[in-house]
Structures are given as C-alpha cells and as structure tokens.
C-alpha cells in the first residue's frame, strides 16, 4: 500500500453502516406486509363504498306495479297512479315505463318479437324521490290501491334494509380482517426492525464507549431504519395502488357489457374511493412511525443493558 493519498478526507459517511442484507430483508418483509395491509384497506373501502351506493341508489326510487286484468284499462290506471304519486311532497318525478321500454326490459329474458297485448305483463310507474325528505309512502299506498286495486307500491324498504344489514356485516368482517392484518403488520415491522438492528450491536457499543449520549445514538439509528421502513412501505403501497388502478381499468373495460351488469351493480365501477388512497398513506405513515419507535426503544434497551451489565447473576 504505497498510496500517497493525503487529499482531504471525503464527506463524512453515516454513523450507522449503510444497507446490508438484514436491512434489505427488513425492507422486503415490510413491503410485503404493507402491500397486504393496503389491499385490505382498499377492499374494505370498496365494500363500504359499494354498500353506500347500493343503499342510496335503491332508496332513491320506488315503483308502482300494476297487474293487468281482463277488461281493465291499464293505460288509464297507469296515468291515474302516476298522478296520485306525483301529488305527494317528496316525489321528484313519477314516470310511466311505456310499452316499448317495458318490452326492452323483458327482451333479454323473453326474446324479441313479442306483442305486449298478448301477454299479461305488469307495467311500472317509477317514482324518483327526494332522499332527504321521502314522501309519506303509507298514505300514497292507501291512495293508489284505493284508486287502482291492481296496483302495489314497492318503496324498496325491505330491500334496502336487507342490503344495509348485509353491507354492515361485510364491512364489519372487512374491518376485522383489517385489524388482524394491521396487527400482523405491526408485529412484522417490530420484529424485522429488531432483526436488522441485531447486527448493529457492536456499532451501538462503540458509539457508547466513545462517549455518545443515548439520545444521539438512538437518533442515528432511528433515521436510518425509518428510511428503510418507509421505503418498504412505499413500495408495498405503490404496488397496492397499481392493483387498484389496474382493477379499476379492467372493470371499466369489461364490466360494462350486459352480462356483467350484476357484478358492477354490486361493486360499482370498481374504482377506489379517496378513502382507499388515504388508507394507503396512513399505512405508510404508520410503518414509518413504528420503525422509528421500535428502533428507538431497541437501541435504548441495548444501551441500558450495557450500562447495567454485571458479571455476576446475583441481585
């Protein structure tokens, strides 16, 4: 070694050794757990959002159904029912589904080329209501059935009730899964951080014996490990967001065809709401905080053990 390098020393390197295998393993484990946590957040948010959509879509409408009968002028009855419904406060509009439209609705089930007159097909009046101030359905029901005995008013309340119950159950189950995944995330982050720190005990010891304060040592490690944790979490979060975007795109391309209308009726357009993205951001922030706190506690405990070290087990 005859190197004659007497140039000024290079910029000061970090006190904590730069990335090693343990750090990479920690980042990977944190990334995977963050990915799963973010997906769960997205899933729960999707279910919650869909439940809200179903509920509002269904409760925004009510229908009057009029069954045909012999010697019964269904067109007049429809107009009559429409007029009664439109007369109530809280009704935005009442629309008769005309022959052509009814035919269109039935076509997928019964095939084309049907004359409605040949079949005893019920006809509908769709009532759009003001959700904030719904009309008096009981009064409306009595008034309509008095005028048109063949009519029934369906305010969808039974449906909405069932859907709300189902959505609540699904959301609760989702929250339960989310809680489990978050608990696993917390533990993974804690153990991965401690594992990655284990290889640095000698560095902690040296810093300690050259007179560094505990807070100083903890800060050096905190910074490094928080960055590793955040990198892992950001990678996992980004992967989850990519999944959201791709799913949304795929759904918008494929779920618009008629056969998939039921799916899209259940899950909306599969596009993630703001809450999912907020959730991803929160997961990343949580991981950053956890790595920082875990690092601090672990370093301080290592230092405590060095300070309290006794040769004998007594006391």
């Amino acid at each position: 070694m005859s190197d004659q390098d007497t140039s000024p020393p290079p910029p000061t390197s970090p006190i904590v050794p730069p990335g090693n295998i343990a750090g990479q393993a920690m980042a990977l484990v944190v990334a995977i757990m963050s990915f799963l946590a973010c997906l769960t957040v997205g899933g729960v948010s999707l279910v919650g959002q869909s439940a809200a959509t179903w509920q509002s879509q269904i409760s925004r409408e009510a229908t009057v159904q009029i069954r045909p009968a012999r010697d019964f002028d269904i067109e007049t009855a429809l107009v009559e029912a429409q007029a009664i419904a439109a007369g109530y406060d809280g009704v935005r509009s009442a629309r008769i589904i005309d022959r052509e439209e009814t035919l269109g609705l039935l076509e997928p089930w019964l095939g084309g080329g049907l004359g409605l007159d040949e079949l005893p097909v019920p006809r509908l009046v769709v009532i759009t209501i003001d959700e904030a101030a719904p009309p008096d359905f009981d009064g409306m029901r009595v008034a309509i059935t008095e005028a048109v005995p063949n009519a029934t008013l369906d305010d969808h309340r039974a449906w909405v009730g069932r859907l709300v119950a189902m959505a609540r159950t699904t959301t609760l189950a989702g929250l339960g899964v989310l809680a489990l995944v978050m608990a696993a995330l917390v533990m993974t982050v804690v153990f991965a951080t401690r594992g990655a720190l284990a290889g640095n005990h000698d560095v902690i010891e040296v810093l300690h014996f050259v007179g560094a304060r505990a807070g100083f040592i903890a800060r050096q490690f905190e910074r490094r490990f928080m960055i590793i944790g955040l990198q892992g979490a950001a990678a996992g979060g980004a992967a989850a967001v990519a999944v959201f975007v791709v799913t949304g795109f795929w759904a918008s391309r494929n779920l618009t065809s008629a056969e998939n209308e039921q799916l899209s009726a259940f899950f909306g357009d599969f596009s993630m709401g703001v809450s999912a993205y907020v959730g991803v951001a929160l997961v990343i922030a949580l991981v950053g905080m956890l790595t920082m706190i875990t690092t601090r506690i672990t370093v301080l405990r290592v230092l405590y053990e060095i300070d309290e070290k006794r040769a004998d087990p007594a006391m």
Partner: peptide, 28 residues
C-alpha cells in the same frame, strides 16, 4: 480495537468528536 469497518480511518478517529456534536470543519 473495535474500529467501525464502514468508516475510513479518518472518520474512526474523528468519531468521538462527532458524537460530541463537533463540526467536521473544526476537527479536520
């Protein structure tokens, strides 16, 4: 010895000053 192997000799020797919060320019 307990030298830190990721740091240069200069940095190893400067470490006690660094942990005391001294500025690199002051101890070079």
């Amino acid at each position: 010895f307990r030298l830190l192997s990721h740091m240069s000799i200069f940095e190893n020797v400067a470490l006690p000053l660094r942990v005391r919060g001294k500025d690199a320019a002051s101890y070079r």
